[in-house]
Computed example of a mutant assay.
Amino acid sequence: MDLKDHIRGIPDFPKPGILFYDISTLLRDADAWQVAMGRMANRVRAYHPTVLAGVESRGFLLAAPLALKLGCGFVMLRKPGKLPGATVGLDYALEYGTDRIEIQADAVEPGARVVVVDDLLATGGTMAAGIKLLQNVGAEVAAAAAVIELTFLHGRDKLDVPVETLVQYDN
């Protein structure tokens, strides 16, 4: 099955000149969703994770069922102020400005083997920040995984871990 047939491109979203790759069309097709999760499980399983970390918010849609399929835990990497209890955060640079990502202070045990999961790898800034944040709290980040990679943005070059993606777009 070609998963690209189940990913919709929406031009000029969220702003003019951007082509948004929408996974909602993949999620709503039961067969395509099963195939995507099976392929992702096969790729991620090789890293022997004890925890999957989903990046807000579409990363949650992938990491939670994938963690269940792999028999490992799931934690959330979120925007500021979204997690209860004590949190640890990391500020990171965007193309224009900065952002912050947080995790609950007790979300992962030191030495936990983690794979970071998101729907899309574009410039790599958010994924790199998630990896660094997890490393800062003592996790061993084994890999990063996404359904879609925009290879022309060279995001994987910013990551210091192996990267697994299911479909790539070259422009």
Rank of each mutant, 00 (worst) to 15 (best):
G155N: 08
V163F: 15
Y92G: 04
Y96V: 14
T151W: 14
R43N: 04
T87H: 05
D91M: 02
T87E: 02
V75W: 00
A30N: 12
L150F: 12
T25E: 10
F20E: 11
R58W: 07
S57W: 01
L166N: 12
D170R: 11
R58H: 06
P14V: 01
R58I: 04
V141W: 00
K132F: 05
I103E: 07
A142M: 13
V35H: 15
H6S: 07
V88P: 06
S24V: 15
G97H: 11
D157R: 09
P65R: 04
V88K: 09
Y96S: 15
T126H: 07
V88S: 05
L70Q: 00
I18V: 13
D157L: 14
V117D: 06
T123S: 06
L150K: 06
D29K: 09
L83G: 01
A32W: 13
V167R: 15
I101K: 10
K15I: 07
G111V: 11
D106C: 08
I7D: 02
R45G: 03
V137Y: 05
P110V: 14
L52A: 01
E109N: 15
M127L: 10
L66Y: 07
E95C: 08
I103W: 09
V51G: 00
Y169F: 13
Y21S: 15
V55K: 00
G38L: 04
I18A: 05
A142C: 10
P162E: 15
E140S: 14
R39V: 07
W33K: 13
M40G: 02
E102L: 04
L159W: 09
Y92V: 04
V116Y: 06
A46G: 00
G9A: 12
M1V: 10
M40L: 15
G81T: 04
G124P: 03
